[in-house]
Amino acid sequence: MDFWRVPLDADTIKVSLGIVHILEDRCKGCGYCIEYCPKQALELSTKFNQKGYHPPVVVKPEECVNCHYCEIICPEFAIFSVESPPITEPGRAGTHPNSAIKVK
């Protein structure tokens, strides 16, 4: 997310991390999760599911902050995210408090 300055309490904020699960065969390709993902972590895939729709695909798995919005807006019960265990790898979004915040 772009901020015009780093928030003063940025070092105390822990950004949660999530893993997105997609139940592809339930998807009907409406694209709501792709459009409304705050991190643009999803994209329409080129492959077809069982019913002939294009399900979403996670293109930026490291960006997911486990906000669950894809899960609650999906009309098909086809996508959800779970909390991912914190990874102590430097530079990865969510591990370093400032890594998820970009200053314009």
Binding site: K28, G29, C30, Y32, Y53, I72, I73, C74, P75, E76, F77
Partner: peptide, 10 residues
């Protein structure tokens, strides 16, 4: 596809 009833239901 795109119907909002599923979202309201969920």
């Amino acid at each position: 596809p795109g119907c909002g009833i599923g979202t309201v239901f969920s």
